[in-house]
Design a protein around this nucleic acid. Sequence first.
DNA 1: CATGAATGAGCATTCATTCAT
DNA 2: TATGAATGAATGCTCATTCAT
Lengths: 190, 190, 190, 190
Amino acid sequence: MSGIRERPLRADAARNRARLLEAATEVFTTRGVGVPTEEIARAAGVGVGTLFRHFPSKEALLEAVMVRRLESVAARAEQVAAASEPAGALFDCFRLIVEQSAGKSAFTQALAAAGVDVHASLRGPSAAIRELLAGLLERAQQAGVVRSELTLPELLALLVGAGAAVEQLGPDPAGRERVFEVFLTGLRPR
Amino acid sequence: MSGIRERPLRADAARNRARLLEAATEVFTTRGVGVPTEEIARAAGVGVGTLFRHFPSKEALLEAVMVRRLESVAARAEQVAAASEPAGALFDCFRLIVEQSAGKSAFTQALAAAGVDVHASLRGPSAAIRELLAGLLERAQQAGVVRSELTLPELLALLVGAGAAVEQLGPDPAGRERVFEVFLTGLRPR
Amino acid sequence: MSGIRERPLRADAARNRARLLEAATEVFTTRGVGVPTEEIARAAGVGVGTLFRHFPSKEALLEAVMVRRLESVAARAEQVAAASEPAGALFDCFRLIVEQSAGKSAFTQALAAAGVDVHASLRGPSAAIRELLAGLLERAQQAGVVRSELTLPELLALLVGAGAAVEQLGPDPAGRERVFEVFLTGLRPR
Amino acid sequence: MSGIRERPLRADAARNRARLLEAATEVFTTRGVGVPTEEIARAAGVGVGTLFRHFPSKEALLEAVMVRRLESVAARAEQVAAASEPAGALFDCFRLIVEQSAGKSAFTQALAAAGVDVHASLRGPSAAIRELLAGLLERAQQAGVVRSELTLPELLALLVGAGAAVEQLGPDPAGRERVFEVFLTGLRPR
DNA sequence: CATGAATGAGCATTCATTCAT
DNA sequence: TATGAATGAATGCTCATTCAT
């Protein structure tokens, strides 16, 4: 998939880029997107100039962070989908995606954007998730384990909602389980 | 002449305060909390100085806006709760609260805060909602229409999640209905 | 002419605006347009914020400075033109304009712009100078004291050139006089 | 193998230096001295590092560009001076110098510096021009074709002025001719 | 009390210069 | 030696908050 970049990118440059993404993910997630770029650079152990060499603007950096997360989620979701028996795959992916995005509302909002307009670079990854879910939804509906009238946009909205609910609930495994139960039960035909 | 009045031309001041709250609600909701205070003052037809006379900081203004919304929601929820038959009251309130907060993620986040730490001034209104919901939840569970293992924090999380889902879905009445259906079905004992 | 502004502008605000223009004129002239905005604000005895309240960008400030200079030159040139006998008026104005712009290459460049494209706000003042000179040139040519084949753009170019020459020469009254002599002799029919 | 060479692959280095000067001349002339060094390096087809290896600072590069131009002008002016009959040589050189600098105000300003303080490296070339012009001026004055009271600094100032005038006029051969006519007539004794 | 001008810390971004590869 | 990635001081501009009018 990825791999072939414009130019191979020097070893140290690649490491700095990775560190920046790592640091930005961490900092944006824990402290919001309002943190100064300098903080992110410091967290990554580089100067601001380096940050701006790799990402032409703060917005571009945020975008790159989201792309990475979406790609990661899409990849894992595909694995899970492949490993599950057809009927349950949607439920497994639902859980996975929500758990991946737990505590990261910035990411949740990125996922939200899967349904609306979004920067070009986000189109790819979010489309991947979208298509995966579309397939899983159809299969689950044909298997009769998910309400037949539910559409893909509604499923995406429910994913976002579940992410928000889990984030709001905080770290309480049993509670989270009960919240999931509500969603998964609700998805089933009554 | 002279005369020491406690609150001389309080009428003007009260109107300005009301206008500011109105304008801030509108502007924060439609354009986010990032808008400069001057914009809000302009929208309210007053100078910035007046804004800061009524609210000591931008944050305080935001807080006041949220308090007002929460109070309004609490009031309506209480009416609805009183008017519904005991068993269904929770479901009616669930819908109401979510619908009130639709499209206002700032507010949703305020509601979210009902479960976690919050500024003193928000404690009151959110406690009111909290208590109302606690009562409704217990009654609904005793009536056997809501899963008996569900706790109040989980219910609050689900409210937040439903708000996020509805906001993400956008204006699609039928879709919104199906999303509600998922939540309300999920709340019921299986 | 000027006088009626959008709003009368509070006394202190007007003073700050004037100070800023004064300081900017001084600083841009002596140290070039590269000086930081903060320096200009400091020279004017105000904060940067005030500078940007009065002039939305550094460029706008530079423009305002140039407009002011051009207006001033235009006004004095008109006085001189009115006071001189028709035949010599062009020569008197030539000297005046060059002397006004001596040592201010930024301004000279602004004058230069009178012939080329320029921001809207500079159009007015530079057009005034242009028209004045057009009239004087024609009269001088009809009086037979200036080469009949010389056009207005060439006259403007010569003004710019004379400004540059005088600036280059530095403060040497006698030398400056001889330089003027060359220009004024050269303008006459051979 | 081994071997201590004074200048190992000097050919490459020399070519890079030449390319840099070429590119810098072009870029500074067309886009001003504000262009980033990286742009110049790119235009020369080398890395920034190479630029800074050859020229210790951006200013040094600008200086080298100006030296080259001045040397070139000096050389041509000497040819022209040698080829002209004594009386007219100054006029021919005047034209030549102005035409060489047309459209290059950076260079014009460099020439301007010939009269005032200047970096050490510019002293040489500008002194050459200066001396050449001093000789031509004296000869022309002795031949009675140039005002006897005109001094060398004034002549230099007029050269700068003529450059500015021609640059301001833009590409209009006939107009430029008339502007030259003014200067050359003005130089003659009345 | 209302007004809006003044303030200045804070921020994203640029660019000359250095240095690891 | 050439390269271009890294650096970080410097800059233009914003905006919450204060205070003179």
